[in-house]
Nucleic acid binder design. Sequence first.
DNA 1: GATCTCCGGATTGTGTGCAATATGTGTCCA
DNA 2: TGGACACATATTGCACACAATCCGGAGATC
Lengths: 235, 235
Amino acid sequence: MNENGVAAAYGGGPLPDAGMAGPVLAYSSIRAWIVEGRLRPGERLIEARIAAELKLSRTPVREAVRMLAADGLVVTERNRGAVVRSLGRQDVLDLYELRARLESYAAELAASRAAAGDIAAIDDGIRDFGRAIRRRDLDHLERTRLIGEANRRVHAAIIAASGHARLAHLLSSAVDAPLVFEALHEFTNNELARSNLFHQLIRDTIAKGEPVRAAQLMHEHIMQGRDRILRSLDA
Amino acid sequence: MNENGVAAAYGGGPLPDAGMAGPVLAYSSIRAWIVEGRLRPGERLIEARIAAELKLSRTPVREAVRMLAADGLVVTERNRGAVVRSLGRQDVLDLYELRARLESYAAELAASRAAAGDIAAIDDGIRDFGRAIRRRDLDHLERTRLIGEANRRVHAAIIAASGHARLAHLLSSAVDAPLVFEALHEFTNNELARSNLFHQLIRDTIAKGEPVRAAQLMHEHIMQGRDRILRSLDA
DNA sequence: GATCTCCGGATTGTGTGCAATATGTGTCCA
DNA sequence: TGGACACATATTGCACACAATCCGGAGATC
């Protein structure tokens, strides 16, 4: 596996339940609310209300809101608090192009640097992704959540395998997640199977140490996600 | 000029003086201390001490420290506070490669998107950079500070011209600054003149709308900075 | 002599109060 | 009727107090 916190990065981390510390609990909860659409773009985040709901004081909530602002998930204005960021078509285009460049760079590095343990971690994610898309016993939201979590782990494992701590940090905090979730929500079964295929292709090129192919596949994979988003945005 | 906050990004912004609000003052001050080396890598940031020095309470200082942590300038551990991040040789290599990729992307976009006002802003920065490197009436630190500020403005103007808000945010918060400052500190006059030349070349390719050349020149420009850093790191 | 335990100081984490600021609403006047 | 002003309310910004936690050292024990 790789150095310090690299593996922990990417996405909001595990589900917002367990006995987490205050700010972390608040951060994960709010992030999940935004990612899953319970908080819509443009909606205000009111510290006191959130604090009451999570049974915390305003202090840790405040901290969490600021972290989300640093991530770019919400925008804040002095004395006016935070609102969920809303994204126009151009923003989506820009965001996905950026994510494609960063993650294909991560895949490129992973292909040069990955150790056996890194590959194993990617495989775990891919296995869970495959299982999740075959689940028929869950409602749509719950299944999407499961798929999203597995998808997150696949990408996180690849990024961790890159061994580039700062890149991992950037991708974890700055790159969208609401969009990814929304995209998955709309995926047909064919599209999910295609994602699964690309995960495997990327995994293989990384394992074989072929940086250029890994990068190209990752770029394409993310562009497919972008196109899916744009299609549902237009509808 | 470009949309919303894009132009304001990159680096810590203006010098930490004027009548700024609490957290912003704290953020800028601490950032400057780190960038200019008054706080060395590995050193602890003690909230109470900083609050006393800036005549604030711990609350805004705490917020500023968390912002710096989000930027990756300091690392925090629960119940143990924040210490200035220290970078090994590999970190420097990774960081500069990342910065080169992001900023050359910015230059590429700028070459496609820049408006007349954007070019004018770049020109302003270049003019000040040229003036700063010719100054002989200042001590070394003060001159470096001036050069650094002008350099920051050149790069910020190019990034603003890219019109990519998220990219600007990433570059402003995530990419180093202590390294840039340190690099400038060690630059010979020849090297400063070369930087100035590259700024102009990049500016011209952007103005003429040649994305590929702009990106390549920016990549090279940043790699030159990286090599300078590595040389002084080895000494 | 080495290691373990416990204690005290230092520092961060969290809760809460009050002041500063923005927003919405009603009223008055043209 | 429409607009401007003033006030009431909602919300954030900052300060401070107290609780939780960590770290280093002194002393005890083997």
